[in-house]
Every structure is written in C-alpha cells, then in structure tokens.
Nucleic acid binder design. Sequence first.
DNA 1: AAATTCTACAACCGCACGTCT
DNA 2: AAGACGTGCGGTTGTAGAATT
Length: 263
Amino acid sequence: MGRQPCCDKLGVKKGPWTAEEDKKLINFILTNGQCCWRAVPKLAGLRRCGKSCRLRWTNYLRPDLKRGLLTEVEEQLVIDLHARLGNRWSKIAARLPGRTDNEIKNHWNTHIKKKLLKMGIDPITHEPLPKENKATETSHADNSPESENHHVQLPETNGTASSEENSSSPTENCSSDESHLLDSIYDDFPLVSCLLEDDQALLVDAPWEFPPSGQNFDGDGMASWTENWLLDCQDFGIHDFGFDCFNDMEMDMLNPIEMGNKQ
DNA sequence: AAATTCTACAACCGCACGTCT
DNA sequence: AAGACGTGCGGTTGTAGAATT
C-alpha cells in the first residue's frame, strides 16, 4: 500500500525558487486563495511539489512576514518560550507575529544556542551548565546537531530526562512549578512582559490588505507590485496569529503572563 | 588575489496528526 | 474501524556569501 507521494517525483523541480516561480505562486494564491496545496503547482503552472509551494508561501512569500534578524526582545521571548515549550517552533512562532517557525528555528540554531552556551546556560534545559562541561560543551556544541538530541542528562530534572517526553520540552512536565517559573521569567525579563503587552494588541484581527488599495493586479500591475513586494521588506501587518494553536494546558501556562501583564 | 573555512538561512525530507469517506 | 489523503511540524541538508588564511 503506502500513500501516494505528494507529487510525482519526476519532472518536479527542486532547489531555490526563482522570481518567476514566486510570481506565479503569488499570483495564483491571490486569485484563488490558499486551497488544496497538491493542486496548486498544476493550477499555477509550476513544476514544483505542493509541499514545496506551501513552504515557500508560508516561510517566505506571505505578506505578513517580517524580514531581518530577530530583535533583542523577540530573541528573549524565544528563549522564554523555548524554556517552556521546547523545540515546538510552530507554537513559539505563533507568539511572534510575522515570524515563521523555520526562521525561529534557524535563528535558534545559529545565534541563540551559541549565545546561551557562551553564557554558560544549557540551551536544551535552560539550566546553568555544570562547570566541568562548560568548556567541552562550548567547544563542540556549535556543530553538533546531535547535542540537542542527546538529552544531556541533567543534574536533576526530577529524574525524567527521558527521551520519552522528548519534544525537548524540559519544563513541560513540571506543571506544579509552572507559576514559579513564569514568575521568575517575568521578573527577570521585563522586556518580555513589555512585548507580551504589545503582542496582545497585535493580536487584534487586522487582516492585511491584499492587494493593497489602489493597486491593480492584472497584467503588469501584478508583476510590478510583486517585484516590489519581493524586494522590499514585508511588514504589512498582523494576521492569523491567534492562540488557537495552543492547547488548553499551554493556554493555562500563558494566562498568568497575560493576566499579570494587565495588572 | 586565490583558496579555504565558516555562517546563515532557504529548502527538503520523513513522519505525525486530523479529517473524510 | 480502517484506509486514503492533505497538511503541519521538526530535523536535517545544501548552498551562497562572508570571513579568514
């Protein structure tokens, strides 16, 4: 049996997207909206796999994306959320409007991880590194993706540093300590609370204008706008970053922050 | 100036999950 | 209930450009 591949591998292009392909994809989605991704390549005239189209759209072409490096505040929020959620990048991304899980994941691996190690903090557990390990960790952790999967046996995480709960969510299971943790994070990082406040405001349903008013999208209008769009920074506004991606437990975890913030 | 190494990030892959029939 | 299907997620790889030798 087995399932059908998402696309026939033959004749499907891979690798970097060209501006032309981007245009086609944008044009198609503008006209038809996001529908069945499998059908998109064919309908849009692209020799790409549907999955690839979806990824390209969500990670790069979506107009509500911010580009550029994460700010200090965003970075701190990522660290904070990672401490609570582990490598659940999509959930973390949901808390950072305009950022994608892929972007955050990359930033984590290339910047934050190193930063934490330099500070003597284990990027997996967010606990201080045991002194004797610091040097060695720092020296090889950079290029060792495995290090993240090793589930470095921590001094003590109530003995449950098992690969089971994996999802590398170190604090996920210690709900009793949740409020403590949150309190300390909240105290330690006033910037985070500041962002959360802003973030809250941003969550107001404000759909991006598509196409921007005054632009027409037939023929050249579309093409020139698309080109500008691709060239320029994409910061149109916020859309689609609600809380619905959090399950109840996570919502409970987050509530204290939101609530505390309002007080 | 050329060669080599490093870094950052876009893109791919395989698996998991939810929905539909 | 089971299989097919579409989509989302996280890990990993490939590559272009920057930095270093």
